[in-house]
């Protein structure tokens, strides 16, 4: 049984969220917008799961989603919606999530981000009457599988002095 580290560093959380915001807004070189990762979603999920009361607030998450939508030129509110749902799920399942094995956590994350992508795409598809982008769904699932890597990067203690 695995338990995530409970200590929260505000600096680390802020830095990771800023990096995630940049990647989610401006994309990564060599990747089209449909296959680019939504790193911010994974980072928010991580801190919401781990942080409890010290995790990102709903207002912060809402603003972050709006920023991503505005900077990315996407439908305004869609990312905010997604991130809010992520935080709500994290608050609901955080205790069970923290106590589960790494593989279970990864499966949970993959299913969650996939479900949210389906819902958000479904909303847009319903409005426009278009079909869903299956490539995007596969990409989202693939990026969800990198959850262990996200955990590894965010868990690591980067400070020179162990406090």
């Amino acid at each position: 049984m695995s338990v995530l580290i409970q200590r929260i560093s505000n600096t680390k959380m802020t830095v990771s969220i800023v990096i995630g915001l940049i990647i989610s807004s401006f994309g990564l070189p060599g990747l089209s917008s449909s296959t680019a990762p939504d790193c911010l979603a994974l980072i928010i999920l991580y801190w919401a799961m781990l942080g409890g009361d010290h995790g990102p607030r709903l207002s912060t998450v809402f603003v972050l989603g709006m920023v991503v939508d505005f900077l990315g030129g996407q439908i305004v509110g869609i990312h905010a919606l997604k991130y809010l749902c992520l935080v709500a799920l994290a608050v609901q399942f955080s205790s069970r999530f923290r106590m589960s094995a790494r593989l279970n956590r990864t499966v949970f994350v993959v299913l969650t981000v996939l479900a949210l992508e389906v819902i958000s795409q479904g909303l847009v598809s319903l409005y426009f009457g278009a079909s869903m982008d299956m490539g995007r769904l596969v990409a989202v699932a693939a990026w969800g599988m990198t959850w262990s890597l996200v955990e590894f990067i965010l868990e690591k203690n980067y400070s020179r002095v162990d406090r």
Binding site: L58, S59, V61, F62, G65, M66, F70, G73, I75, V76, G77, I78, A80, L81, L84, C85, V87, A88, L123, V124, Y127
Partner: peptide, 28 residues
């Protein structure tokens, strides 16, 4: 959850406004 529902509603409103009224197009 009350806060969550409030923000969710606001986000949905924004989505609706953006899709229907193109309210945010100049800002974008």
């Amino acid at each position: 959850y009350v806060k969550f529902l409030v923000y969710l509603t606001i986000a949905l409103c924004f989505v609706f406004l953006d899709l229907n009224q193109r309210t945010f197009t100049p800002i974008k």
